[in-house]
Design a protein around this nucleic acid. Structure first.
Lengths: 332, 332
DNA sequence: AAGCTTGCGACATATTTTGTCGGATGAGAA
DNA sequence: TTCTCATCCGACAAAATATGTCGCAAGCTT
């Protein structure tokens, strides 16, 4: 006879969360794989015994009975989260909630729930205090997330993860009708509130495309493996398709004068490690850094309005000259 | 005699992760609280038995022996993560890593490690594929995080969580020397790469301040409870101190013409639910929305350069007129 | 209706669990 | 040093439990 505790713990780890199920026989096999040669009867008894105290569910509508962990229950976790860990997770929650795709967020939610349960137990008063006392503020304006059809997200993820082809109803931008397409998912890119499926289409088996997942209206996963272009590289794709806003990987030396109050934070949170800052006699900050040529950087510069004067490179300074002209025309 | 399995599971949940420890006597008390009246001897025996198979550590340099879970081990988790859950966590990892304070990130890391372990086991080939095939792209430029002194972050968090006063060495912006201060932590605000401690100072017991935590050089937690101004409200503080960049909560009706390609995404990811978009005959998009007057919104508008023409409110249009003038002067 | 699977009660037995006791050990105080 | 105290740990016996086996019943399939 082996150690019943360890065997039962192992068994509990083998039981999936509802709505999935497992069966006595399955458990017997898996336990046997892990070195516990045990009678099926014993497993039945263990399950019934544990069910009395743990949030286990037994679906006895059919035989064999299907066993699972209650969907909402927190199950077992050892070592338990310590309060600091729990605090950190509850902070992570604040970061993730506005950013992450909703379907995914729901799935990590269970961890946050668990964290909050720990906090509640360790210091029920403090947890509310904490909620009142911590804020994660957005750095930039946040857009509404596009609406997604229930379940679509999950299916696209699964297809991308398992590398399976799909058939999907996809609505192009501006169009009101969706069309059936045969798609080979290659990857996923999340950017701000929009997530894209990177994929190959049957029509053009050479060039991958990206499709915002909120334009999918129906997805069926097929049994066939995805056909990939050889040497497909997601980073490369992202760059060449302007998804990451990078024009090139060439570095240039950036130089500009910033208003002190508008850019003082650059001293402590530099653009990158090549950045140098020097206060000028007129109070402005001369900032120098090696930068890659990205649209995001330009947008960031533009957001300073007249609180920045770009000095170098020439090309960028000219762009700003041009911008000045255009704005003058626009608001004349 | 009770059920040994359940009792042992409960006990395992009571054992902290290293470097924290617990002791036989402590476990006896806590188990007794949970309804397991058990001899101390039995606990010792259980611990030794479980140590053989689980990553438990026993520090036997002193008596009583200190028991803990191995720092790196994954312990027990039931129900086990299913692959989709694991996938989602590994995605959350990509979101959080660049955003979250480093000290915190290390603490949630254990969950990500666990997730990756699950993925490795369930489909070792697919996990690598997934890593190659999913990217979370930054929406805006990201600054380097300021350097923090080891342990400072943890202590400030703990003080803020437990509502305890601290003594700290704090270096003001621009100064090279830090000064000792007596501080009453009230809360925390995370914004982009900078995190702030919101607190009261002994010198001015009326007005809370915010202090970037990377300017703290040493922190000692005191035993005394924080004194708070009555009716302290973090959200209010954040607003009145321009941390959230909100000038006022008054809504105005915003109206502007956007270049189509630059702003097409607004159709699918609107600013808020009041937004209306209409395509003009010249191809531009007329966007209308009720907005609050925030600096962030203005910055976002400015980042469009000449791809936006602000129409209303007048005040905002005038700001842009002014901007056009200033830019013209600057780049003349 | 036969055959199969699965759940479950019963039962005897081997095994484990557990409280108790007493000795060993080591730290700190007198 | 010696004494005291807390703790660990081995031993032991009784009580409780765990386990394999068997047989029956229920429900499904063929």
């Amino acid at each position: 006879m082996g150690n019943p505790t360890l065997r039962q713990i192992t068994m509990l780890e083998l039981i999936p969360r509802a709505p999935q199920k497992t069966y006595a026989k399955e458990l017997k096999d898996k336990l046997s794989n892990r070195g516990y040669e045990i009678d099926e009867r014993t497993i039945q008894r263990d399950l019934v015994a544990l069910e009395r105290t743990l949030p286990l569910r037994c679906d006895d509508r059919d035989k064999p009975y299907g066993w699972s962990w209650a969907e909402k229950g927190i199950g077992i976790q050892a070592p338990a989260m310590d309060p600091i860990e729990a605090l950190t997770l509850s902070l992570a929650e604040q970061y993730l909630e506005p950013l992450m795709p909703t379907a995914n967020y729901k799935r990590v939610r269970i961890f946050f729930d668990r964290a909050n349960a720990v906090l509640k137990e360790s210091s029920p008063k403090l947890i509310n205090r904490w909620r009142d006392r911590v804020r994660v503020l957005p750095e930039m304006i946040r857009f509404k997330k596009p609406k997604l059809i229930e379940g679509i997200e999950d299916q696209l993820y699964r297809a991308a993860f398992e590398g399976l082809q799909i058939k999907a109803l996809y609505r192009k931008r501006g169009e009101t009708q969706s069309a059936l397409r045969h798609i080979h998912p290659l990857g996923l890119v999340m950017k701000g509130s929009i997530n894209y499926l990177i994929c190959m289409m049957d029509e053009d088996a050479e060039h991958p495309r990206y499709m915002p997942i909120h334009r999918f209206e129906q997805v069926t996963i097929l049994d066939e493996k995805v056909k990939e272009p050889k040497n497909f590289n997601l980073d490369e794709f992202v760059h060449t398709n302007n998804l990451s806003f990078e024009f090139s990987k060439d570095l240039y030396t950036f130089k500009a004068l910033f208003d002190y109050t508008a850019a003082a934070h650059l001293v402590e949170t530099p653009l990158n490690s090549t950045q140098a800052v020097k206060r000028q006699t007129d109070g402005r900050l001369l900032v120098t850094a090696r930068m890659t040529d990205t649209l995001q950087f330009e947008q960031w510069l533009k957001s300073f309005g007249s609180d920045v004067e770009v000095l170098a490179p020439k090309k960028l300074r000219n762009k700003f000259k041009q911008l000045a002209k255009e704005l003058s025309n626009q608001y004349k």
